[in-house]
Design a protein around this nucleic acid. Sequence first.
DNA 1: TTTCTGTTACCGTTTACTTCA
DNA 2: GCTGAAGTAAACGGTAACAGA
Length: 263
Amino acid sequence: MGFNDICNTGLGLGLGCLGKQENFSHPRKKKKLSMRYDHFLPSLTLGSSDDACKAYVDDESVDLHRKASSVSEVSFFSSSSIKKNINFGGGEEVEFEKVCARVSDEEDGGSLRKKLRLSKPQSSILEDSFKENSTLNPKRKQALADQLNLRPRQVEVWFQNRRARTKLKQTEVDCELLKKCCETLTEENKRLQEELQQLKSWKLTASYCMQLPAATTLSMCPSCERVADGGEDPSMTTSIAFRIGMKSRFYDPLSSHASAACS
DNA sequence: TTTCTGTTACCGTTTACTTCA
DNA sequence: GCTGAAGTAAACGGTAACAGA
């Protein structure tokens, strides 16, 4: 498939971006000028009557592709772009990216987004670097960009996205933890409510027993259901049970799943 | 010293694209 | 082959820190 086959290239040849080169590394500047990043890239535009086919001759990418690299299997513009070698004046052969825009409503003034897919070596190097330090300084950014044949801005964006992913994952983990904690507390609350009901009913029984001083009373722990000899003093039974109930209020569901009421 | 302006880095959100089931 | 969901690179708007005038 040839160049012309793809773009059905017409005769229009335009040089995009009249801005200065130094603007490229100043993302904030581009915002102030209300222009998309793409529009700052010096570009050759090959016009066609129907399709908007643009050829980007990004100074940076030209420079990048001059470099030979072990990780040069860069999957730039994977499906919607082709690479082509052309000769510039002095015969120097330069590889550049030619991106054929989709024919869409983005055509006038719209964005032409180029989807980059990082290769595995690139990703793993970035991952390794991220593990070392999740933030970038300019020197490190440039070094990585050089190493990976990417623009510093791409490295920066990758780190931003990576941090966002990490944060998202951590949020998910925290969410799961809180969910479990909530379930545990709900269960514990339910159990304590039942215990409270039992204690209330026991209190009634105890008051009844107090009217029968000679009677022997037994008490049963509502949690473990062990029967204890309430002994000689029925009022003690009540107070012990009450103390047990009080203690359970300080049960920490995160630190222990043991019965709170039985220690 | 304070204020203003420009630059840089980062974040949260959104968009556009790719991959995969 | 089509479609929707998930993943992700990139863009955008906002903010804060910092340096220099």
